[in-house]
Amino acid sequence: MANKIIEIRNLRKDYHVGEVTIHALRGIDLKIETGEYVAIMGASGSGKSTMLNILGCLDKPSDGDYWLDNVDVKTLDKDELARLRNQKLGFVFQAYNLLPRTTALENVELPLFYNSKIRSKERKERAINALEAVGLADRRDHMPNQLSGGQQQRVAIARSLVNDPVLILADEPTGNLDTRTSFEIMELFQDLNEKGRTIIYVTHESDIARFATRNVIFKDGKILRENMVTDRQFARDILKTLPVENIEEFDV
């Protein structure tokens, strides 16, 4: 039996804007097991971003239960949540969120700075390993503005890997990338998933969602449906079929 990474029961999230209460999430039940590769889909305002924030322990639910790797998140205070994020989670953002004028290596090292148990030598080693894992070992001393969008996202993925998290959360990781580069990132995610990483990502593109093993579709703060991906695609194969033209990666 696979181990449960995430277990959510009847989770609700309300926002109070003035006197109006917005029900962003209205009773979510979700289980995600180790080694799964889940795409969360939904239109704008469906609650998928709120869900991701709560999954990422950046936000707390108004009601309901959330266990992350058998930790009851509800009982933790702000600082404990920060430690949980530092040790169990990795984040990948749509806009990469790399520190400017900071080398790739230093960007990847960043999460380890907030773990006082890790000495500087180990920190560097792990950062180099993470960069190798995303295929950018030769770009360790490059600044973000010397890297293409796809490369920047790879650095960001290396950063999310460096603390050896139980779960990687990605918020529209291909949103700023062109098609080919998107597939390359998906290929990287699939590789990582095959090596046992649990990954959850949010997307609104259905062709990107087909790389996952399971899709969870949100609508109006509820899970509309959940289905295993039957026609799962592998980015590796698609990339082979794409013509290797002079398609330079570019930023949107």
């Binding site: 990422g56 600082d79 920060a82 994020r85 530092n86 969120n97 999460p111």
Partner: peptide
């Protein structure tokens, strides 16, 4: 601001 948000998301506490 975004750097601060990032630092928080990767485990920086308020006091850090």
């Amino acid at each position: 601001t975004r750097e601060i948000g990032l630092r928080m998301s990767i485990g920086g506490r308020g006091k850090d």
